[in-house]
Nucleic acid binder design. Structure first.
Length: 662
RNA sequence: GCCCAUGUGGCUCAGGGGUAGAGCACACCCUUGGUAAGGGUGAGGUCGUGAGUUCGAGUCUCACCAUGGGCUCCA
């Protein structure tokens, strides 16, 4: 018999007289390794294979153990089976469907006659722990399709039967069955652990409704989200991160910092309080400065239009579901859900020459979109909002340069805001779209070429484009590594057609411009929500609603404090003075919780010397310095939109401690 | 829109058929205190809305509204 050679990562070779499984290779190396084995990585394939996989001659194998990061996928997959087993042991009438691994965990969709409650999750956790203790071996069997169908049919597992029939239609003759313990098995292609005991830590997380195969028309199932880790420590760390994310929830921060509110009389429509409005306006000012720098002109366009406009633009046909309509004086109107049709009208208002292009017009117009009740969320998904929206009308040969200019502007803005971590997606034509395929080819090609010439890496998102054109989506990755879609650039050959837009070329002939839709922050509302979570409310001073909180040690210094407050305000610095007869420590605590960047504590010493004592929000206290010096330095920090305090001298040791104590 | 949960003073929450409770915030009084909560007194609520059951409904039932977690969809 010819020998089968398996190559290990250190290039050593193991010889077998048959095609060994991953586990057999591990056993040939050592019992400890074999005990911990949960799968293998073969050749250069990133996907973990089952430890029961038979390996061909010449395979390069890296064994995945419970200690390798790759094992998480296997462990979570098995944990999904574990959870399904636990649920069926608790409630035998519950039917199983599918249970995939997702980022940070897994879920399992159940078809259950009764709804799961939070108490049920506790029961499931207990049952899972109980099953883990049994440490049942996991065995793979290959069943002929007919046997699988008849078995699951007898069990009443109709969703499993549906899945097997699909596999059969694809030409499969056998299907994989994983058996754990005596009585429980599930259809699965693997990979799975050797023994259930290899799953070190699991925890159910939440209950949700979900449709079979993600389709609204299918039966609704009950999804249980859960996670599993290689060690109890990793699980605890993960749960701690979840807590951290909860603390940073922008809805909570918005309320705690007095930034914005909601009311049931205007669902999903934020009320920005004075403090929130400061952030809103500061961001707008910042973007406006960039507009001047990058050759944009700002415009103001109407809020409500005759519906005919949206017939012409195609929005009525493609976007009606999300639009607000009203009927007045026997005419149909709609609140604009986007600025672009209005900008096309404005483009037409004056005859354009090739010399006028590129024509870049920006609009902070308020938009209204009817979002379905279940999808709205804090500031990140609202029904009325304002984008840092602009449209660029240009010639096809200017496209590359405009895309380049956009990416540069975006990078500058994001860097200033401390958001250097972002990724680019290129979204291509969706199924429901307008315009000829040649136009789509052209538009998609232009975007891709621009990215390549800028040396920017990107990922293609097939079918995710807008109905009028392909787009670049900029995903910002926040401090907790969560991606958010903010910026976008969409190439549109269709709207200029719909509005018959034209310009007179050098050749004195009529040409059609290309239209770019673009935004950098996305919407101010969503941006503020995302940014609050990114910074956990610790805004750079130029954005902070209150920049300086003045506080006196006793009433004796009140006049001095009032004088300083006025001086700061004259300089355009947002200062507040707490005149209540509370103790200094009390006022500091309040300013700290409000995340105010600077506190000026004023006692007799300061008053006599005309100085201020500066306390940074991290807790660091500086030596008293003349008021003028303080104001001068602070102005620089604000005007230059610095991310770090100009007064910060060393690493801020207090910040962490304070953050965790409140 | 769909599934599930929640809705009690400005905020965070207790109370689960017999006519509303706490802490914080707010007002006033005492305290004038030097870097994260000094003490006292007081005011504040048609218990999301509307029907129903009941002698009696925050409390039970139903409908609606809003919010939250998901699904689907998106800036």
């Amino acid at each position: 018999m010819s020998s089968v050679r398996i190559v290990l990562p250190d290039n050593s070779v193991k010889n077998f007289d048959h095609e060994p499984t991953v586990l057999e290779v591990a056993q040939s190396i050592g019992p400890r390794l074999a005990n911990d084995t949960v799968g293998g990585l073969i050749d250069d394939n990133p996907e973990v294979v089952d430890l029961r996989t038979k390996l061909k001659d010449g395979t390069r194998l890296k064994i995945v153990t419970t200690k390798s990061p790759e094992s998480l996928e296997v462990i979570r997959h098995s944990a999904a089976h574990l959870m399904a087993q636990a649920v069926q042991e608790l409630w035998p009438d519950v039917k199983v469907t599918i249970g995939p691994v997702i980022e940070d965990g897994f879920y399992y969709d159940f078809d259950s006659p009764r709804s799961f409650s939070p108490e049920d999750l506790e029961k499931i956790d207990k049952k899972m722990a109980e099953i883990l203790k049994r440490d049942d071996p996991v065995v793979r069997e290959d069943w002929p399709v007919e046997k699988a169908i008849s078995t699951f049919e007898k069990m009443g597992e109709r969703f499993k039967v549906e899945l097997i029939r699909e596999l059969e239609a694809k030409g499969e003759k056998t299907v994989g069955i994983y058996r754990q313990g005596e009585n429980w098995f599930d259809l699965c292609r693997g990979p799975h652990v050797q023994r259930m005991g290899q799953i070190a830590a699991t925890k159910t997380l939440s209950i949700a409704g979900a449709y079979w195969r993600g389709n609204e028309k299918n039966p609704q199932l009950q999804r249980i989200y859960a996670t599993a880790f290689n060690s109890k420590k990793d699980l605890e760390e993960y749960l701690k991160n979840l807590e951290e994310a909860k603390k940073r929830d922008h809805r909570k921060l918005g309320k705690d910092l007095g930034l914005f509110y909601f009311h049931q009389y205007a669902p999903a429509s934020p009320f920005f309080a004075p403090k929130g409005t400061v952030i809103y306006n500061q961001l707008q000012n910042f973007i406006r400065e960039k507009y001047i720098e990058y050759g944009y002109e700002e415009v103001i366009t109407p809020q409500m239009f005759d519906v005919d406009l949206f017939h012409q633009s195609g929005h009525y046909e493609n976007y009606r579901e999300n639009m607000y309509f009203s009927h007045v004086d026997d005419r149909d109107f709609s609140l604009k859900p986007m600025n672009c049709p209005a900008h096309c009208l404005l483009y037409q208002a004056e005859r354009k020459s090739y010399r006028d292009l590129p024509w870049r017009i920006a609009d902070f117009g308020r938009l209204h979109r009817y979002e379905r009740s279940g999808v709205v969320h804090g500031l990140t998904r609202v029904r009325t909002f304002c984008q840092d929206d602009a449209h660029i009308f240009c010639r096809v040969d200017q496209l590359q340069q405009e895309i380049g200019g956009f990416m540069k502007m975006l990078d500058e803005i994001y860097k200033t805001l401390g958001m250097s971590n972002y990724v680019i997606y290129l979204s291509t034509r969706p199924a429901q779209r307008m315009g000829a395929d040649e136009l789509w080819d052209k538009a998609e090609g232009a975007l891709e070429q621009a990215l390549k010439s800028l040396n920017l890496s990107y990922t293609i998102n097939p079918g995710d484009g807008a109905f009028y054109g392909p787009k670049l989506d900029i995903m910002f990755v926040d401090a907790l590594k969560r991606p958010w879609q903010l910026g976008t650039l969409q190439v549109d050959f269709n709207l200029p057609n719909a509005f018959q837009l034209g310009y007179v070329g050098e050749d004195n002939k009529e040409h059609r411009p290309v239209m770019l839709h673009r935004a950098i922050l996305g919407s101010l509302e969503r941006f503020i929500g995302v940014y609050l979570e990114h910074t956990s409310g610790h805004l750079p001073t130029w954005l902070a609603p209150v920049q300086v909180a003045l506080m006196t040690v006793t009433d004796r210094q009140l006049d001095y404090a009032r004088d300083l407050k006025n001086k700061l305000r004259e300089l355009g610095i947002r200062a507040s003075l707490d005149e209540r007869g509370e103790k200094l420590g009390y006022k500091i605590r309040e300013a700290q919780l409000q995340k105010i960047p600077y506190m000026l504590t004023l006692g007799d010493k300061e008053m006599q010397n005309q100085t201020v004592s500066v306390r940074l929000k991290g807790g660091q206290v500086l030596d008293a310095l003349p008021f003028a010096t303080f104001a001068e330095k602070l102005l620089i920090e604000i005007q230059e939109r610095r991310l770090e305090s100009v007064f910060q001298t060393g690493p801020n040791l207090n910040q962490e401690a304070h953050n965790s104590s409140v």
